[in-house]
Design a protein around this nucleic acid. Sequence first.
DNA 1: GCCGTTTTCGGCCCGACTGTTTTCAGTCG
Length: 584
Amino acid sequence: MKTNAEIAAALDELGDLYELDGAVSYRVIAYRTAAKAVRDSSVSIMGLTREGKVTSVPGIGKTLEEKLRALDETGDIPSAVKLRAKFPAGLVEMTKLPGFGAKRARQLHDALGVDTLEGLRALAEQGEVRKVKGFGPKGEENLLKALAAHEERGGEPEPRVVLSRALPIALEIAEALRAHPASDQVEVAGSARRWGDSVKDIDIIATASDAKALVDTLAGLEIVESVSQSGEAGARAVTHSGMKVDLKVVAPDQFGNVLQHFTGSKAHNVQLREAMVRRGLHISEYGVLDDETGETTRCATEEEVYERLGLPWIPPELREGRGELDAALKGELPQLITLDDMRGDLHCHTTLSDGRNTLEEMVAAAQARGYEYLAITDHSASHGFGNHVTPEQLEARIDEIAALNERLDGFRVLAGTESNILPDGTLDYPDELLERLDWVIGSIHTSFGMDESAMTERMLTAINHPWLDAIGHPTGRKIETRPPYSIDMARVIEAAAANGTMIEINSAPDRRDMNDVYARAAAAAGVTILIDSDAHGAETLANLRYGVATARRAWLTAAQVANTRPLDEFLQLRKRGRSSSATT
DNA sequence: GCCGTTTTCGGCCCGACTGTTTTCAGTCG
């Protein structure tokens, strides 16, 4: 069965092909919207298609339902097959070149008969492209530049950077700008403000008594390599690490409009504007135009922007076009979890396996963060990276932790493990040992290549293990570097909800696994969510903020997350805590 | 191609930039 990612790619491709074919733009947009809806869906779109329910997904109607049926039954969509014969793959690649879209690709194809990037470059070098109507010397030059850049990246799309690399840069720059006496307000906008998994660039919006002074400050920062397009309105900079930074200096009375606009997401803004056009309001980065009065309202704060639209302020993490407008209109926005709600961390490592700090050091760091409890979950007997913990070592660790707890006041260390889920779904410690522990996380670290049904069965077997309390990083993805392994998360969620197994949001910034979409679905299905740092050192306990951010993007409240609870309540939420209320 | 406090047709977000155009189309965020 096709995955949502594969279906989304198929719909995007069909949109590209229809665009090359000259379809009306709204039809093309419909395919792109549908592709996004499929990508954002936590349930299997093919499953819904087979059940005849797929048109309940916003953006998918009768026509697309038919195409999804064909895709399921024949493995392809007939119209895509037909259009691919008409427009070779090279032509679709052309539309992806920066500055080039379907119209210009089609023009070149029709005028020059070219349908590969190599052929196009040859013609551009011979000066043939400038003769095409609509192109000139500049167009040809830009095409050659785009082709060279494309080649340099090996045909890959523009890279995105994991948030944890971009955020410190963004905050450092914002801090430096705030420190300048000419600055007034300085805020990071864009996907960094929405705490997305990764970002393309950094947007900073500011107000200042002297815009030029702010631009100069940016240009003078040590981390900044170069600045271009600098002027009164702002500048674009590139850091030595290759991060693009856009600074916009705006008038104080429209700071709210600009911040709202550049925080996005695009989907959120489009939905917001479409909804407000029906009320005669036109939103732009400059203000809100009222058809009735013909007047444009400028807003100094973002709260005023939303208020002008009759809405409560919407937290940036929710602005992804995933139902937040409806919820805001109905006054049903969730009270999102915050980092301050967290009372413990249930997944970390010590020097016993591959951590950098000792048991005592990790506990001290957790206490310093104001936690009430910490579970020590070193890797298990078959970890396989030379850092495994034998059953004997783990038994000694249990005693060590018991002794440590004797000395601690108002803090509890839980003896745990991050046990490997073996390919057959079993854990790699004897049951008697797992039973003696306070806490067991099961994670998959090997055999990522299993097919979806085998991988799902493997996970379900683990979920049904009586001493497994929680599943760690359930999809195995690494943001921007490794896709998730094939697994039916809908079934995993259903099984976990059925027998009270918790599912983790792993906060390692390149994991954030499960992701926001699955976490929202899991919580809705009644799964108890856990947010863990997976710290391998005292300092990375602080990574929990990335997991909390994912939880916020999943619409979660504190009540839906196990480790916001006081120790006793948390212990009761464990499978073993429910089967016997006794605590060790 | 989707969708509905303008419901089954006729709409569908907003503005900047670029390069080419003699009034604007294409692309981007």
